[in-house]
Amino acid sequence: GKELVLALYDYQEKSPREVTMKKGDILTLLNSTNKDWWKVEVKATANDKTYERQGFVPAAYVKKL
């Protein structure tokens, strides 16, 4: 199945390749080969529509579930 990670801290994206997350968010882990930056998929809701974004977050800010 898919691997999930838990956001340990809030993170505000600093570039278009990154994604914003809030502490407590559960994210889908896409790639953890880089030890510093993990690629995740974030589900977000805006205007009653759910959309998914993929991007990088600092590996130290998340932990595998």
Rank of each mutant, 00 (worst) to 15 (best):
P16Q: 09
G24L: 03
V62N: 00
T28E: 09
K23M: 07
E13V: 05
V57Q: 00
E13C: 12
V57C: 03
Y11V: 00
D10L: 03
K63M: 14
N31L: 08
T33W: 09
L27N: 01
T20M: 04
G1P: 11
K2S: 09
E13A: 15
A46C: 15
N31M: 07
Y61C: 15
K63L: 12
N47Q: 10
K63V: 15
T20H: 04
A44C: 15
G24K: 02
K49P: 09
E18R: 05
Y61G: 05
P16R: 09
K43I: 15
K43S: 13
Y51A: 10
K22N: 08
L4V: 07
L6N: 01
N31D: 15
V40G: 00
V19C: 07
K39L: 15
T33N: 12
Y11T: 01
V42A: 13
K39G: 04
T28Q: 08
N31G: 06
L30C: 07
N31Y: 07
L29Y: 03
L65Q: 04
A7T: 03
V40T: 00
S15L: 07
K14M: 11
T45H: 11
A59M: 04
K49Y: 12
L6M: 14
A44F: 15
L30H: 03
W38P: 00
T28L: 15
R53G: 05
Q12K: 12
M21L: 07
T20C: 06
V19K: 01
A59H: 02
I26Q: 04
F56C: 14
N31Q: 09
K35R: 11
R17M: 12
M21A: 02
I26E: 03
D48G: 15
F56L: 08
L4G: 03
K2P: 12
D25E: 10
W37F: 05
L65E: 03
K14E: 07
A44Y: 15
S32I: 05
V40E: 01
K22E: 05
V62D: 01
V42Q: 15
F56W: 15
V57H: 01
P58Q: 02
Q12E: 12
K39Y: 15
L4M: 11
E3A: 10
S15M: 07
L27S: 02
G24R: 01
P16D: 10
A44T: 14
N47A: 11
Q12C: 13
I26C: 06
S32E: 13
G24D: 04
L65S: 03
R53H: 06
M21S: 00
K39P: 00
K35I: 10
W37Y: 06
A46D: 13
K2L: 11
K23I: 05
P58Y: 04
E52L: 15
A59S: 12
T50L: 11
K43C: 15
A59L: 04
K49Q: 13
D10A: 07
V19R: 00
L8G: 01
D48H: 10
Y61Q: 05
Y9S: 08
A59R: 10
S32D: 15
G55A: 03
D36S: 11
L29K: 00
Y11S: 00
Q54C: 11
A7I: 03
K2E: 09
Q54M: 08
L8M: 09
G55I: 04
T50E: 13
W37G: 01
K49I: 14
G1E: 12
K63E: 12
M21N: 00
A60V: 08
R53I: 08
L65I: 14
D25I: 03
E13F: 06
T50A: 10
